[in-house]
Write a protein that binds this DNA or RNA. Structure first.
Lengths: 187, 187
DNA sequence: ACTCTAAGCGGAACCGATTCCGGATGCAAC
DNA sequence: GTTGCATCCGGAATCGGTTCCGCTTAGAGT
């Protein structure tokens, strides 16, 4: 694994900047690979080598925006970070994850085209690992691995988008329902 | 809403039969709109008028296969159908739904490309309505609507496919985890 | 400074989903 | 049996993601 060539790094930055600008101007719908390439002044091949595919590009944009969230629950202050008791941390984590998911809904919808795991795997695994650790502390006898999936699944972008945008469900209700499940599990 | 024209009905049947045959012969991967149209002896436009898009076609194939499941939990014998207590029905329902989801994984993956709701809405709504009714009986004070979503979400095809195929998780574990959540909710 | 090579580049070509629209056809009314 | 027309049909054209491959270049070694 050697260092990225300087021209490659420059192109990566140009592409991300161009993509960010297009999303800001036209929304996620307008984010076509050809257009991003043209705006960044590179060939489409370059986008694909760098990001794999359209979801990969979306994921890179998301990743950039939430680097700090990822570290907040790993090493930040309580209740998200270490220090609080596991139940409070889990609750805070699910609440925070709900908010950031709602905040990035369009990009997530685009990134999850091929399922949440194709490229989004990295971040999902981080969330899953964190939550299953907390659950294991709460209920050492339970299948923390599967339970973590079950608590994370309701935050899938397509479901949230549908309920919030089409059905008028409030974000708070979603948080409360998850918290209720978590409580039930703890008891 | 008038009756479907006879040539249209005939074409619908030819298309479904051709699609079924292609899936049987080459799997879901080989199911391209152009190929289905050619095999059915119709134009691609006909596929789109009938089924809307690729997911719509996949959904039609699924729907055809599980008509009986849909009625089993509405009017069949207990524990799935009416007669058993709500907790047992909910448990049986989730178990059965898990099995049929795993059984149709490839088609579901194809159908859910644009989120589980674009076209899959009909069936999802049926499941959701049924489960929330049961939950409302168990916990009249809870937000049955959101809780039903939360229990159904872990059965999303992309997640199940990933866990079962890539991570080697057993179907039974998934069922047990869901049952545990349900128990916690009931208590 | 020069050479060599792995890494990177651009954009044409490809592929499959989706749209469009002029022409054909079922069928209900007469 | 004929007519009127809403519905349906076919397939060419479009559109955008993805792949491919011959050319270019950064940068390590000499």
């Amino acid at each position: 694994m050697r260092r990225e060539r300087t021209d490659a790094a420059r192109n990566r930055a140009k592409i991300l900047a161009a993509a960010e600008a297009i999303v800001a101007a036209q929304g996620v719908r307008g984010l076509s690979m050809a257009e991003v390439a043209a705006a960044a002044g590179v060939g489409v091949g370059t986008l694909y080598r760098r990001f794999g595919d359209r979801s990969g590009l979306a994921y890179a944009l998301i990743d950039r925006r939430e680097r700090e969230f990822q570290s907040a629950f790993i090493e930040g202050p309580p209740p998200l970070g270490p220090g609080a008791d596991p139940a409070a941390r889990a609750r805070a984590f699910l609440d925070a994850l709900t908010d950031r998911t709602v905040g990035q809904l369009d990009l997530l919808l685009m990134a999850e085209t091929a399922g949440p795991f194709a490229r989004f795997g990295g971040a999902y695994d981080a969330y899953h690992g964190h939550l299953s650790m907390l659950i294991a502390q709460l209920r050492p006898d339970a299948d923390a691995y599967c339970l973590a999936d079950a608590l994370l699944a309701p935050l899938a972008a397509p479901l949230l988008a549908h309920r919030i945008r089409e059905c008028g469900v409030e974000v708070e209700r979603v948080k409360l329902a998850l918290a209720a499940l978590l409580d039930g599990m703890t008891t």
